[in-house]
């Protein structure tokens, strides 16, 4: 193998590793950005995967002096738009400019989210055991609804309702924490 050939491969090797480390550091942020538009977890993850591939293709054009996450989120928005275009249901939700509006408003609300959601962990700890276990099974183990349904003997609708109530409890809890802080 010629020295030049070797160097080119070494270079692309380094680039790949650099990309992977940057991407993994930003992945959470990119996921949340996408989830603001497509909140369903598995769909949002698909979009993030597709985004990763596009980002790698465009990685040559990335300026390391600039922060990675905003650069990545611009592509994520485009991929999300393309993804929505092929899905009528999601179009119904995000049409008439709502997608852009949500993405922009989410940026503006960041400080408020931070102020509230920094209490999320403490609020999770306060959940009764059963609720906490369900959150863990759904969000962390990513158990699908059928398997949760089998494990608990409850219907899918009942589990969705439980999850919804748990999120409402957490929502109320973080608000109360913010109020306590202010008092």
């Amino acid at each position: 193998m010629s020295a030049d050939f070797q160097r080119r491969f070494d270079d692309s090797n380094v680039a790949q590793q650099r990309f992977i480390s940057l991407f993994l550091r930003s992945e959470r942020e990119i996921f949340r950005y996408v989830a603001a538009l497509v909140p369903n977890v598995s769909d949002a993850e698909d979009i993030v995967q597709q985004t990763a591939l596009v980002l790698w293709q465009k990685f040559d054009a990335y300026d390391p002096a600039q922060p990675f996450t905003p650069w990545a989120c611009r592509f994520a928005l485009n991929i999300t738009r393309q993804w929505i275009e092929r899905r009528k249901r999601w179009q119904a939700l995000l049409d008439n400019g709502l997608a852009d509006e949500l993405a922009q408003r989410r940026q503006e609300l960041q400080p408020e989210f931070e102020a509230r959601l920094k209490h999320l962990n403490a609020c999770l700890e306060k959940l009764p055991h059963l609720q906490r276990s369900l959150v863990e099974a759904y969000y962390y183990e990513r158990a699908n609804i059928d398997s949760l349904s089998k494990r608990t003997g409850k219907t899918a609708a009942a589990i969705y309702k439980m999850l919804q109530r748990i999120r409402q409890t957490l929502r109320t809890c973080v608000e109360n924490q913010v109020k306590t802080e202010a008092a």
Partner: peptide, 22 residues
């Protein structure tokens, strides 16, 4: 309604992405 929607979705997205909670 839009702000409340974003807040609820953000909470949901953080639960799904913050592995250290668990």
């Amino acid at each position: 309604a839009r702000d409340e929607y974003l807040m609820q979705v953000e909470l949901h997205a953080r639960l799904a992405s913050n592995t250290e909670f668990f």
